[in-house]
Design a protein around this nucleic acid. Structure first.
Lengths: 184, 184
DNA sequence: TGTACATCAGTGAACGCGCGTTCACTGATGTAC
DNA sequence: TGTACATCAGTGAACGCGCGTTCACTGATGTAC
């Protein structure tokens, strides 16, 4: 049963969106092609009409995950409200909801270690996504070396959430409270 | 062919050491029990004489990896040379060698996302390891809120290396150079 | 200290299972006239 | 605009493979006397 070009494009979007969520929750090796296709409402056999292999989907999903997660920040910056958007981004990043729900969160703590073991396409998408976040954060800063300070802040946020998710509750609470108190 | 108690303890140490390296290089799901046993010079069947299951080995290996990686820092602090030891630790952390060789590096960027999906034992070992690093870094600082500043610095280091490993070369170079210039 | 036997560390085959990928098939869509 | 045919999105079975774990077996170690 062939499907229209528009329907195919919608299928692809659903696969990428499903993958973007599942990859953040379960990791690259913990997310099977069959799982992600089922999340998108299809069976696994049709996968290769859309992607050459699993790696290609991972690369597309990483780009989509960055775009989705940083959309409010990017929109605020585009609207000329960079400082408020950046403050909201930091508060959201260090919030309990973000720590508890990696599937909707930043791709850095959720997927970076897996992407480090992936191909060039996924790494390029990852680098571009991280750079876009830092560009937006830098737009909210004033004074010298804004871009450098944005990079260090983003690295600190990602490291804090990464450590919190992997630690016992007491350690997680300590690193998060500390990060919230001093967001650089 | 039964083996002496001392030989069994040595076998266990070899398994844990092999796992500590392979888990950092390949991740939890990318490191099979058979691979790690082969690294330790044994076949996979004997594994369950030492550990109840793969999760138990992961927890032991995380503790060993933290101890191995932070040993120079801990030794320097114990010798009363905390500031020099902390400076060496930061330089080593952000060095090209550490970025290129996760198998001998900090467990945070290499394994945290996997440990976040593991059981309580692995998370407890992870939290204890991270806390020990921060305790040692705090010993090198002066002034108020030393422990908080040590946590933020460690989170920034881990985030920077995590992002660098997962990004294209240009982005990796930028985040590393930035982290080196401002280590908080 | 010497002997007889129970224990158990390590081996290698086997288990059920899920993985990424391939393929024959279907029928609706796209295209050529 | 209508028709005939080629295309191809999606299905579901199948492939070879590696996974975590179990188990019967071995022979050296540990223990009881």
């Amino acid at each position: 049963m062939r499907v229209s070009r528009a329907a195919k494009a919608e299928s692809r979007d659903r696969i990428v969106a499903a993958a973007a969520r599942r990859l953040r929750a379960a990791g690259v090796e913990g997310s099977s092609v069959g799982d992600m296709m089922a999340d998108a409402g299809m069976t696994h056999g049709g996968f290769y009409r859309h992607f050459a292999n699993k790696d290609a989907l991972v690369a597309a999903a990483i780009a989509a995950a960055f775009a989705e997660f940083s959309e409010p920040l990017a929109a605020g910056v585009a609207a000329g409200e960079a400082p408020a958007a950046a403050a909201d981004f930091v508060a959201r990043y260090l919030g309990d909801g973000h720590v508890a729900h990696p599937e909707l969160g930043c791709p850095v703590p959720a997927t970076a270690a897996d992407i480090a073991r992936s191909g060039d396409a996924a790494r390029a998408a990852f680098g571009a996504g991280a750079t876009a976040v830092v560009d937006a954060l830098a737009a909210a800063l004033t004074g010298p070396r804004r871009r450098e300070r944005a990079w260090r802040q983003f690295a600190m946020l990602a490291g804090a959430v990464l450590i919190a998710r992997a630690s016992d509750p007491a350690t997680a609470a300590e690193v998060l409270a500390t990060a919230r108190r001093g967001s650089l």
